[in-house]
Design a protein around this nucleic acid. Structure first.
Lengths: 72, 72
DNA sequence: ATGTAGACTGTAGTCGACC
DNA sequence: GGGTCGACTACAGTCTACA
């Protein structure tokens, strides 16, 4: 699977665990909701600054964010 | 420290362990050498696709790449 | 072998709207 | 609540060149 999709899946997974809507996450991470949607669907090549913003908004470190089998 | 600098440091660290020059890495990752230089110096907001390319070129998974204290 | 600069092209990321 | 489209602006990433 492509890295963009893996990232999208991971964000969605963590967002649902935290019981946040895309709108909630977009607000917390100071990003656009339509953008969050396209990232979750693996359509965007997100930058590290925004990955970090999202990780912070989801309450995980980057280390935790990437600490998943699919990133091995 | 800013995330862009952390990424740059991590790339440089791994690159030196592998005893590769910036040119070697740029070639393996199919990126521009001047771009690698600016990323290592924390001046660029690199995208996930290019982080993955670099990780592959350095022989580590994304999980390993981010498995460092500074990403906690 | 690395840093940086300038000019260029492509795309990340914003915003409003509608389904 | 989430997906997507279109128009826009900002910046990622390329390439050449010189220190």
């Amino acid at each position: 699977m492509e890295i963009k999709s893996k990232i999208g899946n991971r964000i969605k997974e963590l967002r649902e665990i935290k019981q946040m809507s895309q709108k909630d996450l977009a607000y917390s991470a100071d990003l656009d909701r339509s953008y969050i949607a396209s990232v979750e669907n693996g359509k965007r090549n997100i930058s590290i600054v925004n990955i970090e913003k999202i990780a912070v908004a989801l309450g995980v470190s980057l280390k935790e964010f990437f600490n998943k089998q699919e990133f091995n």
